[in-house]
């Protein structure tokens, strides 16, 4: 399919004035987009990511109460908790985009049509990132709408120290620079998790093992951190953990006492994601398909 699609495009476009490398990458993008778009699972997974994220965020916003001033509840974390669950679906989507080609042997056709393997990986990463971003925007926007509707009634009021005390009625006092950053950052977080999953799958070449590895990387650090009692090591574990560091982007209160600042935290996750992509790309180049 890829080969014929590429051939069609080349014939239709005819001789191009653009450099061959650029044409190749655009074709790779187009091929990857067609493949991911036409697989039945993609739409379901994107829908599941949105539904699960909004569902858990809504449950959290309905369940957590702030019982007074300085209650310590972070509106960013409470209202966007669903990202913790949605990331698992996003990871599956990203893993399947790479891993299924290895599973079916399709990857040999892809590499035959596109000998520059790192371009294939980059194209896959870009397509997955765009789709994840789209689903992420929907998921985070849905979570935010539910959170803004529920949380002022659960004690997240200006009187308890949320937002400027002078703000008018409604939930607008919860829309601050910090919570806006938390919302956009959560979309970015989901995209980076997807890129991490693409990189890990390129490395492992098997969907099931890659899902296990990615979800293990994300969910095991907080569990391990629980049994580390030394405060310094505990802090380091939280700073290194892709999930906990990345979700620092959702911190909106008490920033001085967090192990990482929001942007440092998302930077740690970005280092994991692009590190995995780089290693995956190098290994993919060097190894048999």
């Amino acid at each position: 399919m890829t080969a014929s699609a590429t051939a069609d495009r080349t014939r239709a476009q005819g001789p191009s004035s653009r450099s061959p490398a650029l044409t190749t990458f655009t074709d790779a993008l187009h091929a990857e987009w067609t493949k991911l778009r036409t697989v039945a699972g993609t739409a379901w997974l994107l829908a599941a990511a949105v539904v699960l994220t909004v569902g858990l965020s809504a449950a959290s916003a309905a369940e957590v109460t702030c019982d007074g001033p300085h209650c310590g509840e972070d509106p960013g974390k409470v209202g966007l908790l669903g990202v913790l669950l949605g990331q698992a679906v996003v990871a599956v989507l990203a893993v399947l985009a790479v891993g299924e080609e290895y599973g079916s042997g399709m990857i040999r056709v892809t590499f035959a049509a596109m000998p520059r393997r790192e371009a294939v990986l980059a194209a896959k990463a870009l397509v997955v990132a765009v789709l994840t971003g789209a689903a992420g925007v929907l998921a985070v926007a849905g979570s935010a709408v539910v959170a803004l509707a529920l949380m002022p009634g659960r004690g997240f009021t200006p009187a308890n120290g949320y937002g400027p005390a002078t703000s008018t009625a409604g939930a607008s006092h919860l829309i601050t620079a910090a919570t806006t950053r938390a919302a956009f950052g959560s979309v970015l977080y989901l995209i980076l998790v997807a890129l991490l999953a693409v990189g890990v799958t390129a490395l492992l070449r098997d969907s099931a093992s890659a899902v296990g590895a990615v979800l293990g990387l994300l969910y095991l650090f907080p569990i391990v951190a629980l049994v580390i009692s030394n405060p310094d090591w505990h802090r380091h574990a939280e700073q290194l953990a892709p999930m906990q560091a990345g979700l620092s982007i959702q911190n909106t209160i008490d920033l001085a006492h967090q192990p990482l600042s929001p942007w440092q935290g998302i930077g740690v996750l970005a280092a994991w994601a692009f590190g995995a992509l780089a290693v995956g790309g190098i290994v993919m180049r060097a190894r048999d398909a």
């Binding site: 858990l56 913790l84 893993v95 098997d206 979800l215 969910y219």
Partner: peptide
């Protein structure tokens, strides 16, 4: 499907534990 099965089982066993022990949930 291997990936979907692995993800589903991890999500039903491990994620509730993470949510119960290391999240904002009361």
């Amino acid at each position: 499907r291997g990936a979907a099965a692995v993800a589903a089982v991890i999500v039903v066993i491990v994620v509730p534990y993470v949510l119960a022990t290391a999240s904002v949930l009361p």
